[in-house]
């Protein structure tokens, strides 16, 4: 049995990594001005596709590619809804989440049920942990040091002015959402790697928490990673504390399970007003 400290560290890594990948996915789209409440649904679809790919082929790479493809399709659907049809970002995102929850649940019963009891092939967890850090490095570099990143930020801050200097916000956002698809796909694939298969609504709000981490991190990559690790730590802590009481009083496990969510709310309240969202969020 590992020491409690090591166990806490490992669980923190397990819980934070999907938040980091999902959070970076949300960050790339939000920085371009697309509100990404739909990250939850993108991760859920990706997880389902990862499980299908992993189970059907037995090849972890196929599972990963399937996840990335599925998340990219949903991500570009979100682009079409918000940019081509100009539907409200939050409403279309929530719609995608609802569809993702219903569709993956149905497809789970009809398509995946025959694999029940076996593990879906997936890349090992450390691959994703390293991947999460490398992705943070990459997103930070692209945003701050490249032409694409500069244009993405410009469009996210003020699409109208960006248009005046000759940029095409709709095209810039298309590319930003491709990155979102890639990262959400990695996040979904990681969830499957962790659980060994797909279960209904297995993201269980991690997409929303990842989005909260983006806000807490002020829409910047490294602070977002830090916020994700904070939330992951809260999750790991609640797992370890379950069954223990508080000042002699017995606490139900549900009370401890609230911890990550309470931590999210407290952190956001403490941060309130401290950061500025991209001014072009949700605008054309």
């Amino acid at each position: 049995m590992a020491s409690p400290a090591l166990q806490l560290l490992t669980s923190t890594a397990i819980f934070s990594a999907p938040l980091v990948l999902g959070g970076l996915g949300a960050l790339t789209s939000e920085r371009s001005g697309v509100i990404n409440i739909g990250i939850e649904g993108k991760m859920l679809f990706a997880a389902w596709a990862a499980a299908l790919g992993g189970w059907a082929s037995g090849n972890p790479i196929v599972g990963l590619l399937a996840a990335v493809l599925a998340a990219t399709v949903i991500s570009q659907a979100h682009w079409a809804l918000t940019q081509a049809f100009r539907i409200d970002h939050v409403i279309s995102g929530m719609g995608l989440n609802a569809i993702a929850a219903g569709a993956t649940s149905m497809l789970n019963k009809s398509v995946l049920s025959r694999f029940a009891g076996t593990r879906a092939a997936a890349l090992p967890l450390p691959f994703f942990w390293v991947g999460a850090v490398l992705a943070t490095v990459a997103v930070a570099y692209v945003l701050n040091q490249t032409r694409g990143g500069l244009r993405l930020s410009a469009v996210g801050h003020d699409p109208e002015k960006a248009r005046q200097v000759g940029l095409k916000p709709v095209a810039v956002r298309f590319r930003a959402l491709l990155a979102t698809g890639l990262l959400a796909g990695l996040a979904g694939s990681l969830l499957v790697s962790n659980a060994g298969g797909f279960t209904d609504n297995m993201t269980s709000g991690r997409g929303y928490i990842a989005l909260a981490a983006v806000i807490l991190g002020g829409w910047r990559p490294w602070p977002t990673l830090a916020a994700c690790v904070l939330f992951g730590f809260a999750d790991a802590l609640q797992l370890q504390l379950q069954g223990t009481g508080l000042w002699g009083a017995a606490l139900p496990p549900e009370a401890w399970q609230c911890l990550p969510y309470v931590a999210t709310l407290v952190a956001l309240m403490a941060k309130w007003g401290g950061t500025k969202a991209p001014a072009g969020l949700g605008r054309f």
Binding site: L150, S153, A154, H157, D158, K161, A162, Q164, V165, K276, P278, A279
Partner: peptide, 8 residues
Amino acid sequence: HYAIIPEL
């Protein structure tokens, strides 16, 4: 209307 993005 200046095409200057204040955040950059």
